[in-house]
Design a protein around this nucleic acid. Structure first.
Lengths: 237, 237
DNA sequence: CAGTGGTCTAGACCACATG
DNA sequence: ATGTGGTCTAGACCACTGT
């Protein structure tokens, strides 16, 4: 065997695959120090640029750990990441082929409650918030109950928006498209109000998505999205 | 104004930022066709390689849509993706600083029930499965109830593993580290058995992770992970 | 067919972390 | 101090796809 007699096209994809194979076959067990980029480039008869891209992507995908001077090592436990889309209710319903409908329940401007001020670390100037509750439907079926708080100081335009035709989510994505967010997923029990809107029994388990959004360090919005019975968030990795 | 008088270091990061700014400021509204890589390279006094990396990453992050010949366009609705790690219970507990404990409840080899055979599209040779139920604890607190099915034909080594000292999850990651998976997250109600193990009331909402794993097209395992009260899966994006 | 992105080459300089 | 990855340059050929 030895070197491949008919060297195949050595693209960065081929190199990624070959490196994965060597890890998989135990040639490079976890924690192994890989040869340097220069050495690999030589072995694969290619340039360091190409090797770099292959290794950089593998590191991004969780298989390798790279550090300057220290070199490239095989991760002890490959940390796999699922990539999951966080779609708007509207898009999610539309993707299922059902007609989407939005309905505002209530919109009110008011001072931020203490728990919200604490949760978002609101400054004195950010104490004025807008509370919006709304429903999203897939056809005639309740899809999602939205309970949202918007920091007026961070998005002044919200003061003049009634949210009776457009959902706060869609509106925000248009007004503040580039933001950072912290999301959490959990299970919770339906309270009386939510159960009536989602048409489930009180106490029924609901899939809950909570998200805090910032724009350049300023808190923009906190939202709780309660999903109807049977909802599953799926992904592949 | 016009051209920047003191041109700053034009790395691919700077270009990414500048492109994002132009989208954000409405200079390049959604659906806009961006200048070609060559033109941008010229504008930023850099090479096409650098521009390519900037745009490629922005496309990967969901901001741009790139097609040969068609060019690069601004996404209508930026599709944001959250990257979330799918850790082993053991790692998750350890990360919280609490002592981890594993306890096997039952392990039994048996023919696959019909629903499982259907769910995994099991062939005739894959009808023999191992059913494992186990608990994961954080200190003395129940953390996770694991209900797992392993296809014996796909992982023959499982036949001689008792799973009384090592959890099926940890064992599988060692034996079959490179697999594809389909994951779903949902909320469910605790049944009598699970509620007793997780020390919650029957009917209480539980966060449920379900995962099907394949190795080169062959079904390896199906697992349901029921998480204790108050569990939240968090991520940032 | 022609224009665009996709990728590779060959070489260089630099930042950084480790020894 | 030195080796490694991080990044950039300048140029080239190719693959795909819209016109």
């Amino acid at each position: 065997m030895g070197a491949d007699p008919v060297a195949r096209k050595m693209g960065f994809r081929t190199i990624k695959q070959e490196v994965l194979n060597r890890i998989r076959n135990g040639i490079w067990p976890p924690d192994t120090l890989l040869p340097s980029e220069a050495e690999l480039a030589d072995e694969f008869s290619t340039t360091r640029t190409t090797v770099n891209r292959a290794l950089r992507e593998l590191a991004e995908e969780g298989y390798l750990d790279r550090r300057r001077k220290a070199g490239t090592r095989v991760q002890r436990t490959p940390i796999r990441h699922a990539r999951l889309a966080i779609p708007q209710a509207e898009d999610e319903v539309a993707a299922s082929g059902q007609p989407y409908r939005y309905a505002l329940i209530r919109r009110e401007a008011r001072p931020a409650p203490d728990w919200l001020a604490a949760k978002l670390s609101l400054s004195a100037a950010q104490q004025s918030v807008i509370h919006v509750r709304a429903m999203h439907y897939a056809g005639s079926t309740p899809f999602q109950f939205e309970d949202r708080w918007i920091v007026e100081n961070s998005v002044p335009q919200a003061a003049s928006e009634g949210f009776d035709r457009i959902s706060p989510g869609s509106w925000l994505i248009r007004e503040v498209p580039f933001s950072n967010a912290e999301v959490s997923f959990s299970a919770t029990a339906a309270d009386m109000e939510i159960s009536s809107f989602l048409e489930v029994d009180v106490g029924d388990p609901l899939f809950l998505v909570e998200r805090i959004t910032w724009l350049e360090g300023n808190p923009v919005t906190f939202v709780r999205l309660f999903h109807g019975k049977g909802y599953k968030m799926k992904t592949v990795y």
